[in-house]
Design a protein around this nucleic acid. Structure first.
Lengths: 189, 189
DNA sequence: CAAAAAACTTAATCATGGTTAAGAAATGAA
DNA sequence: TTCATTTCTTAACCATGATTAAGTTTTTTG
């Protein structure tokens, strides 16, 4: 079950047999049922999560009491609230499994200790974060330049399996549109 | 002039005298006039830029021929197109000085070499990227939950000097609204 | 398998903010 | 210091997508 994370890390940096053992000792497998939460608003986010299998969403509740999906994480993606994780302040976010999901959790403490013992991990996370950051900038570009309809059609085009995988109302929220409008878009054509 | 970058790095990791020398040898100071470009769409982005003094914007031109501002960088921020920088593919973005600006440039090659010699830099960039990534997620949250008017008022509230510093039409673009609408918002109250 | 809960659809009305076009003000260069 | 360019403003009209309120379908659970 830890294979997925070791494979992913080894795509970016090298690890000896002993180093891998050291890494594995710091990881914890967590099996989540559909709708189970890893983090709720108000809690301090003490862990970083790697999705081995399944899908997570990060969301928050707005002033009007509605949910706003900020992002999803599927297999081989990391998810945490870096703000809370680093500052030890309560999070504004929820992190929830949207289907049966296996995550690999690493605590802030364990991660910091690992960075001392395995400096390659700094490189690994730097690379992962560069990609995640670039992806968010790209997303901002799409949010501003594509209408809700175009964004949905692009999702369907680029990630057809993913569109099937998440409830429509969550996808609508992620795209910044209402479920009613998404439904209308799907109806025509 | 390199003081600012050394100070910033030392806030996060330690550097000996020799290590600092090594670092400085890889950096290049670039003095930019207002409106001068560091990167234009179609070029490969080979450098990472640290703003020592002044202000940069990253933007792109949309299909309709309009400019869309993706982000700004002021003193002590890094800016690059990580996608192009890492993949060696042509960029979609422009990076431009919006006032007289001094940047410290580091080439991809020099950065990679420095990472070998100074592994602490991996940590430094990991930390910088964690913050930048978290900031983008927060921004997405605001984009979806605040109207254009509220976003502008929040900017004025939180970063009054910055609002004065950039032309209104760029700020409008950054917030995803038209300059006409921003003008209207400013007019009332 | 039946009842309840969750997710999705449809349609009428409404509001935020875009578009267009013109003019005014500020900035910059000769 | 004047002309040209850039930036900002105003206002009328318009469109995208939100809101509200049912009703329908699908999924979950006892």
């Amino acid at each position: 079950m830890f294979d997925s994370i070791v494979t992913h890390i080894k795509k970016h940096v090298s690890l000896t047999r002993e180093e891998t053992e050291l890494l594995l000792a710091s990881l914890e497998l967590r099996e989540l049922k559909k709708k189970e939460h890893l983090l709720e608003a108000g809690q301090i986010c003490n862990e970083n999560y790697f999705v081995a299998d399944g899908c997570l969403r990060m969301y928050l509740t707005t002033d009007k009491g509605t949910e706003q999906v900020i992002q999803f994480a599927v297999e081989n993606w990391w998810m945490t609230d870096y703000f809370s994780f680093k500052s030890n302040q309560p999070s504004n976010f929820y992190i929830q499994a949207i289907e049966k999901t296996n995550v690999i959790a690493i605590s802030r403490k364990a991660q910091d200790e690992l960075f001392e013992k395995l400096p390659q991990l700094e490189k690994y996370f730097r690379i992962v974060l560069e990609k995640a950051y670039a992806a968010q900038l790209n997303r901002i570009h799409y949010i501003f330049n594509l209408g809700g309809e175009e964004q949905y059609r692009m999702m369907v085009e680029r990630y057809p399996e993913f569109v099937q995988r998440v409830p429509q109302y969550m996808l609508a929220s992620f795209l910044g549109i209402t479920p009613e409008f998404l439904s209308k878009v799907r109806a025509k054509k």
